[in-house]
């Protein structure tokens, strides 16, 4: 029997998800024994044409990481969808937009301004030459894929069968997913292949929590010396643990928490949560300034709110592209994709 064919592809991502595959270490060799890698441009020499030449559903499982930022990525996502039986959205950027999704607080024009224009201190580009989809040169026409105005998650472009969350997905989850699928098991379409409950459920600081978590204000990690054992939220740090899917370590204790840093939310929301940022803002607002709130002046409330630096970037760090907001709206965004 022929080995199952597997493909890997990256879109708008940092490359960490590719590393996450390599991080399977010797397990990768075991996996590689069982499968036939038919496409992995980051690691092996494949051409897009190889994929185009395949027949429909020829690939058994394709892992796509990264968000959809450009025309090329959108085209490849569509192509791979057509050629794959199972498409797995791999990693936070692919699943929920990830860090590239934060670009949705801006638009193509302002991004070009800051990357190629005068606002970028390291660029000397007085004529403001920006990437064009078509450029005529004596030798003929050069083309570049278009840069979309809005960053999208994979499932906003093509149908996705399963998700592996995380920035980047923990190797053990990847291995579990591959083994599950290779064993012929098919979880319900749309399943996120990670634990259901939020990180607090397995956090090893869980017992340090007070009976009631009540915050006076919000602190940044740089402002305080964090207790290495106490619940970070109870210390006044915005920890996204209550809303973020657990599973980032096999032991469950939380990868960032182990490093005495708050959870930033890369594993995405647990099921039922529609909008990570709004839900978490609502949760924090519910426990902040709760003592004596009846007598709190508007100025005092403002002052407390000001302790949350960069709320949009904090609460929507990974999920902006798939939130209710999706992006910052302006006239430019309305007219452009």
């Amino acid at each position: 029997m022929a080995k199952p064919k597997v493909g890997f592809y990256w879109c708008a991502s940092c490359g960490g998800c590719e590393e996450a595959i390599v991080d399977l270490h010797e397990d990768l060799l075991v996996v590689a024994e069982k499968i036939d890698i038919v496409f992995w441009p980051c690691a092996m020499d494949f051409k897009y044409q190889d994929v185009r030449d395949m027949s429909e559903n020829e690939i058994d499982i394709t892992f796509i990481n990264g968000a959809i930022r450009t025309e090329e990525q959108e085209e490849m996502a569509n192509l791979l969808r057509e050629k794959s039986k199972i498409l797995i959205s791999f990693g936070a950027c692919s699943q929920i937009g990830g860090i590239p999704g934060l670009a949705n607080f801006h638009d193509r024009d302002s991004i070009f301004q800051s990357s190629y224009g005068s606002t970028c201190p390291s660029v000397d580009n007085p004529d403001f030459i920006v990437p064009q989809t078509k450029t005529d040169v004596p030798e003929g026409e050069l083309t570049l894929p278009a840069f979309h105005n809005t960053v999208k998650s994979t499932d906003q472009v093509v149908e996705v069968d399963y998700y592996l969350p995380g920035c980047s997905p923990a190797p053990y989850l990847t291995l579990n997913a591959i083994n599950t699928l290779l064993a012929g098991k098919r979880p319900e379409k749309g399943t996120v292949l990670a634990p259901v409950k939020a990180l607090c459920d397995t956090c090893d600081r869980k017992d340090s929590k007070p009976d009631k978590i009540m915050l006076k204000d919000i602190k940044r990690v740089s402002e305080v010396e964090l207790d290495p054992e106490e619940c970070l939220l109870a210390q006044g740090i915005i920890c996204m643990g209550p809303i973020t899917r657990s599973g980032c370590t096999q032991g469950g204790e939380g990868r960032c928490i182990k490093a005495n840093m708050p959870c930033r939310g890369c594993y995405g929301p647990i099921p039922e949560v529609q909008d990570v940022g709004a839900s978490m803002i609502s949760a924090i607002a519910s426990i902040i300034g709760i003592e004596g709130e009846e007598n709190m002046s508007d100025e005092h409330v403002e002052k407390i709110m000001d302790t949350v630096v960069d709320p949009a970037g904090t609460f929507y760090r990974f999920s902006l592209a798939t939130s209710y907001l999706r992006r910052k709206l302006n006239d430019y965004a309305k007219d452009n994709n």
Binding site: V196, K197, A198, L199, C200, D201, K206, D207, K209, D211, K212, I213, M214, L233, G241, P242, S246, I270, P271, E272, A283, S286, I287, I290
Partner: peptide, 23 residues
């Protein structure tokens, strides 16, 4: 209980003390 992670955020918000974290 299938979704609750026991984060305990709700406990302090209850004005009636109707919530408790079952540790």
């Amino acid at each position: 209980t299938d979704l609750c992670s026991g984060c305990g955020i709700c406990v302090a918000t209850c004005p009636y003390d109707a919530r408790e974290l079952n540790e």
